[in-house]
Design a protein around this nucleic acid. Sequence first.
RNA 1: GCGCCCGUAGCUCAGCUGGAUAGAGCGUCGGACUUCUAAUCCGAGGGUCGCAGGUUCGAAUCCUGCCGGGCGCGCCA
Length: 587
Amino acid sequence: MSDDLYDLDGLAASLGATLAALLAESGTPATDLPPVELALPARPEHGDLTTNAAMVTAKRAGRPPRELAEALGERWMAGPGAALCERVEVAGPGFLNLFLNDVWYRGALASMLEAGADYGRGSLPETRRLKVNVEFVSVNPTGPLHVGHARYASYGDALCRIFAFVGHDVTREFYVNDYGTQMARLGEALAARYGQRMGLDTPVPEGGYQGEYVLDLADALIAEVGDRYKEAVVAAAPDMEALPAEVVNELKVWGRDAILPQFKATLARLRVPFDVWTPESTLFVGEGEHRGYGGEVGKALSDLDREGLLYDEGGAVWLKTTQYGDDKDRVLIRSSGEHTYFLSDIAYHRDKMDRGFAHMIDIWGADHHGYVPRMKAAFTALPPHEPDRLELIIGQMVSLLESGEARRMSKRRGDIVTVDDLIDAIGVDAARFLLVGRSHDTTLELDIDLAVQQSSNNPVYYVQYAHARICSILRNLEESGVRPAPEAGPAGEALPAVSVGAHERALLRALARFPDVLVSTADQRTPNRLHAYLGELAAEFHVFYRNCRVLTDDAGVTAFRAALCAVTRGTLASGLRLLGVSAPESM
RNA sequence: GCGCCCGUAGCUCAGCUGGAUAGAGCGUCGGACUUCUAAUCCGAGGGUCGCAGGUUCGAAUCCUGCCGGGCGCGCCA
């Protein structure tokens, strides 16, 4: 925790220490007190900051909350509070309201200014920082990314950016399911479309990938290999499921290698980078032979066998997930001899543990939430049996509306609105801001027509405009010979001792919240909270701008406000960047 | 039937792990540019926080039960 009294954490800690001393004096053990929390009151007459600490600890102290608040306020004002606080006030059932003075506000600004572009960085205490792996998107390479994927991509990416900024060591990972039956279906669909381009009657098999994009893939395939597969397709026609396995295999690998670069290009466009791409197929190769499987899969099977959790029944191999809370046991190897995706997933998570991640997060769509108990069970079954290291985040669905009517997407039918369509329609900034603005726990209703129609008043521009406005002011200051970002020492020595007006105070309070917003956004995995904060910060700036001219003939006031602008600009830029949104210097 | 998620202004949604008189954007109505960017600001209107209980100083928030919607419940993924 910070011991800098010019930030909110430091202030709260100071109050906490005072409260602990107070309690200790009257014989109440002051161990494991809940930390004092400072909130911003909704109403100005409730002060600049407020705390409910007295109410929270009243019961334990055996004293009425108001009396305790009174004592806390008095004692704090006799100590550290004296220099920073005009007065304190006990209100309502036992709130302690703080009325801060100009010294605190100037000190807060100086401290933010000193942090510069790093303001808010490393807000997580060192002891809470983790080596964490975040796996997200992880779409089968069988077709284009759609708007649902864009939501999880935006969410996961923002989470990763925020994690890294507050102090976690983050690895972003994309797991490529390139080894199962869905890939074989892609191979068949590709063969069918290939055949059609060759003038054959080869329909895409029932339940296969019907999308137009497979035709485009077929064209690319033909351009590359000509009629290499024509003979095989003719022999199997019209039923592509009758193709020899080697042919399907070659085609699915070709399809994967064609689609993955498209994923990467689309994700790059959406500003979602990945550090690691792990193909499922690689989990099956390498040392660790067990039950006929090599690599990570073999090792996982071996681990589970050693735990006594595997059994054979009906020609299949089962895992006793019920032992770890699942409602039924699950098949790992089907009686047909094919492995299930579940087996690969277990091996994959085992591998992630092996790679030394203290914490692993998987972000899944709500359509997979039924899979959670078994994954959790399997993870717990693996040594070292630490279920808390795996966190499964379920993102709710995106439902598409088209002129008021629900539209259901299906990749197999080929009826999808792609990520690229969305970006083409409204741009990356608007798309990212839109997708991350709602809680991941709520289904997001997206009306594309409406989104396009309203894209010019997307809230993202409100925030970006505040940033651009400040840039413009700072440019003007520079032209007028005023230093755009005055340097200052820790306690604000270099800042002029001007009085701090109501609008400046409001803006400073908003800025002071930034580190806490980042930490709670990270802790609660809710980038939408940062999104909301940026809107509020921008609003405070716009009000400040309207009421306070920066370039004045009072050098002190100008310098102070210029510093305030510089910090606001930096904070907006940081926040936008953490959501994957650009911060334009002019609009 | 069972499980997970959701139900807050006309619409889309916030509401910070329980705080003081529930907010924003869009839409509607009315104001503000000879001054650093009007993609802005100010004001008005708009609510049984799905319903009913419970927990306590205090509930949109936590618990229980209903009602309504979404998503799951395979030797598919």
